[in-house]
């Protein structure tokens, strides 16, 4: 059985990967991936604490369920935005993306 420290360290590595993705990537879908990875790192933390803390309770798991549902709702909206962007930019080229600067 792995210890709580192991789980939190995996979770922190995933958090770092997510933040890396958000700072480096300029592609909307990749950034969405990064957000999902961050949320999942948090969920891992929650469930690990829920099981491995000195007095386990179910709150962490409940929290994880809520956060999974929230992430799904967020992704749905994000991808809808993506499709709108696709409809707008279908006919024009890349320079459209630079319009909002600063």
């Amino acid at each position: 059985m792995a210890e709580i420290l192991d789980y939190t360290i995996v979770s922190i590595i995933l958090l770092a990967i997510g933040i890396y993705g958000l700072t480096v990537k300029r592609n909307f879908i990749r950034m969405l991936f990064a957000v999902e990875i961050i949320v999942n790192a948090a969920n891992l933390n929650l469930v690990a604490f829920s099981r491995l803390m000195p007095s386990p309770n179910a709150t962490g798991q409940t929290f994880a369920l809520f956060s999974i549902a929230i992430a799904a709702a967020e992704v749905a909206v994000g991808l809808a935005l993506m499709i709108v962007a696709y409809r707008i930019y279908r006919n024009i080229d890349i320079k459209g993306l630079k319009r909002l600067s600063g």
Partner: peptide, 21 residues
């Protein structure tokens, strides 16, 4: 994290159940 005291936590045997959730 490694400096914090969670490294010394002892896992308990009790498992949160579905009913509790």
């Amino acid at each position: 994290l490694a400096a914090s005291s969670i490294a010394r936590w002892q896992a308990s045997e009790s498992v949160p159940t579905l009913m509790q959730i």
